[in-house]
Design a binder for these strands. Structure first.
Length: 491
RNA sequence: CGAGGUGUAGCGCAGCCCGGUUAGCGCACCACGUUAGGGACGUGGGGGUCGGAAGUUCGAAUCUUCUCACCUCGACCA
């Protein structure tokens, strides 16, 4: 690395791409638009999965798995849903190959055409609601609170590592409820789960809000989201939670008999976050030396680098290191001892910094003599020397401090990059200059929203939930408005 | 699908305009030695259908035509 984080967006893209590859997170596959998540990248995703999964279970959810393929007719049941996804579907039309007659290889066997084409799921509402129809008869069957960890395919025109790939990993929650209120509560509860995860685990401050009509999920009544701000001033939608009303229940004819004996359609929600969060993690915290991982998501929280000339020296160091590792593990700290003799310490320092390991310990002959350890933190790059026996406890505190510091840094960045504007001129000036979030009045029409997007590429990220009612005029049309909404250019 | 660009060793590139020894450089890789508290150095070595096909020519990485792939930017999107 060694070069500054570029601010101009095209340079930033390139920088991001390079970092993802250099830090060994992922690379583009030869398969169009797809991505190979490498072991180090995947281990971070696993940490995210574990933390999210626990939060889902703590809120009463269970995991299940539904099919990858969706019969075409299912997808067509809900009008706006199919319209929203039709343009980006991968479709299975045949089930067999055969040898080409001219010997040029294998070809699709035209005799093996499927009666009904299968869609590779872009999301699972339709298969799941089709199943719920069979599962639900009475209010006693409700609520159903299911989550699925899966892959989905959306045939995107242009792809970017983690942020947009043709296939991606995610979780999708799909719940069914007896009342509208209960479903709305669920939608907001999961939005809060996502916000807590982003802020407490990813150290990424987010704005909770509601999508406009134009930006909401196809098939939803309301879409709620969390929006984060990246270091280049662009917004990233990090998670969504949808109140589906009775739309899918009606499309799939899912009814239940209530306590009062009346038949009613079921109320639904769905919510998801994807490997896109990995992109958010990279773009929110990285610096000129590489990744900066929040300790709670770092697969390796502490790396120990020995400094030695001879094997005897390494053995002496290893003995001490083993003691330290035992201590650290007692505190549930994940630690790696990098005793490769094929690389020099300086190289290892740089490599682990690139990979974002929060804390590094270095132990050499000097330390053996003095009974000390050099402790370096990734976020500030500060180094200090500690007594060997105090290391474990100190590191535990340090990890916590790093987690908080990274969040604070991101929070301050977002605060500095959030601007309230009163006029369209001011609005455009911010986008030309410092960029970031813009809080502005909007007349609530989709025409204005579309015109602003067309002219500035900025979109309404959300109508923040904590927005305060205040009288104002739309920056574009001048019409009266009762609250500010959040604008930004987005990924 | 629109506009640009790039294909030469694992990666990054030079050579091409103006055809001509054995296709070159940096990084990476392998061996040996010296090194080791912030990305080591020396010496030696291995690795190429120059994206593919056809053509022009005594001779093509280089010129012509066709073709394929990828990248960046737009439109679309989590």
């Amino acid at each position: 690395m060694g070069k500054e984080i570029p601010s101009r967006s095209e340079d930033y893209s390139q920088w991001y791409n390079e970092l993802v590859k250099k830090a060994d997170l992922a690379e583009h596959s030869d398969v169009r638009g797809c991505m190979i998540i490498k072991p180090y990248g995947y281990s971070i995703w696993e940490k995210m999965q574990q933390a999210l999964d626990k939060m889902f279970k703590d809120t009463g959810h269970v995991n299940a798995y539904f099919p990858l393929f969706i019969p075409k007719s299912y997808l067509a049941r809900e009008a706006s849903h199919v319209e929203g996804f039709a343009k980006e579907c991968a479709i299975v039309t045949h089930y067999r190959l055969k040898n080409a007659e001219d010997g040029s290889g294998v070809v699709v066997d035209p005799d093996a055409k499927l009666e009904e084409e299968l869609i590779v799921r872009p999301t699972s509402e339709t298969v799941i609601w089709n199943a719920y129809k069979k599962w639900i008869q009475s209010y006693r069957d409700l609520p159903i609170l299911i989550n699925q960890w899966a892959n989905v395919v959306r045939w995107e025109m242009r792809t970017r590592l983690f942020l947009r790939t043709s296939e991606f990993l995610w979780q999708e929650g799909h719940t069914a409820h007896a009342t509208s209120n209960e479903a709305v509560d669920e939608t907001l509860q999961m939005l809060n789960v996502y916000a807590d995860f982003a802020e407490q685990h990813m150290a990424l401050p987010v704005v909770k809000g509601k999508k406009t009509e134009g930006e909401k999920f196809p098939g939803a009544i309301d879409t709620y989201c969390i929006e984060g701000l990246m270091q280049d001033g662009k917004a990233l939608q990090a998670g969504t939670s949808h109140f589906l009303g009775q739309n899918f229940a009606k499309a799939f004819d899912v009814k239940f008999t209530g306590k009062d004996g009346k038949l009613e359609y079921v109320w639904g929600t769905s919510w998801g976050v994807s490997t896109r969060l990995m992109g958010a993690l990279v773009m929110a915290h990285s610096d000129d030396d590489g990744l900066v991982l929040p300790p709670k998501l770092a697969p390796i929280q502490v790396v120990i680098v020995p400094i030695f000339k001879s094997e005897a020296e390494l053995n002496a160091i290893t003995e001490k290191v083993n003691q330290i590792m035992t201590e650290l593990r007692k505190h549930n700290i994940s630690v790696k001892f990098d005793k490769r003799d094929t690389y020099k310490p300086g190289f290892k320092f740089a490599e682990w910094e690139l990979k974002g390991v929060p804390v590094r310990l270095a132990i050499g002959p000097r330390d053996l003599e003095n009974g000390t350890v050099e402790v370096a933190r990734r976020d500030t790059k500060e180094k200090q020397t500690m007594k060997m026996e105090e290391v474990a406890v100190n590191v535990l505190v340090l990890l916590d401090e790093i987690q908080k510091n990274i969040y604070q840094k991101a929070f301050k960045l977002r605060e500095g990059m959030t601007t309230r504007v009163e006029s369209y001129d001011e609005f455009k000036k911010v986008l030309d200059g410092k960029t970031g979030f813009i809080l502005a009045h909007w007349d609530g029409t989709k025409e204005t929203e579309a015109a602003i997007k067309e002219e500035t590429k900025a979109t309404i990220r959300c109508i923040p939930l904590d927005t305060i009612e205040e009288k104002g005029n739309c920056v574009y049309s001048g019409k009266p408005s009762s609250k500010r909404v959040l604008f930004a250019r987005a990924y």
